[in-house]
């Protein structure tokens, strides 16, 4: 353990933690939403506010701890939810949050299998509204993966760390 006055080394991006999320996003949106996604280069994020207005949040525990936030532009969320659910969904209805939560659940679950042998994911929580703040573990860097679709943008914010290395 380093004493707290030690200069922190700047966080770096561990591709082994991020690539599973990139692949999972592509797979979930191609398979269940019918939308192709392109990603910009992942970068370290320092501010606490999620990228956009509509956020699905999944907690990790066990071999992998931390949080993953899938944060959508509101208009992108409306169109992506419509494509996922197969019908237009009122953004103020519980079904809208439900759909956003299930997308986050599938993204986190799809990545989890590549991260650890005994990791668990939480039930999704969904926050809608401008400028909300999400608490993240302070000792885990947050990596944001900017994602683009033909109907708008979203971002996947990964702040997880492995307590044990995956068996592969």
């Amino acid at each position: 353990m380093q004493p707290s006055q030690a200069t922190p080394t700047p966080p770096t991006i561990n591709p082994k933690l991020i690539v599973p999320f990139v692949n999972s996003v592509r797979n979930v949106f191609a398979t269940m939403v019918g939308v192709s996604t392109t990603m910009d280069r992942p970068r370290i994020k320092t501010d606490r506010a999620p990228a956009y207005d509509v956020s699905g949040i999944i907690g990790f525990s066990g071999d992998v701890i931390g949080t993953v936030v899938v944060s959508f532009q509101k208009c992108a969320a409306a169109k992506l939810v419509e494509a996922f659910a197969g019908m237009a969904v009122d953004p103020d209805s519980p079904d809208f949050a439900d759909a956003v939560g299930e997308l986050a659940n599938m993204i986190a679950g799809g990545a989890k299998q590549h991260l650890g042998n005994a990791a668990d994911i939480s039930i999704p929580s969904v926050v809608i509204g401008q400028g909300h703040v999400i608490t993240r573990p302070s000792d885990v860097p947050c990596v944001v993966i900017p994602c683009k679709t033909e109907v708008g943008d979203f971002a996947v914010e990964v702040s997880v760390k492995q307590l044990q290395t995956a068996g592969t």
Binding site: M32, V81, F84, A85, G86, P94, D95, D98, A99, G101, E102, N105, I123
Partner: peptide, 12 residues
Amino acid sequence: DDSRTMRNIQKK
């Protein structure tokens, strides 16, 4: 399933 969206998709 705890997601109603997912239940609707399976129903369809």
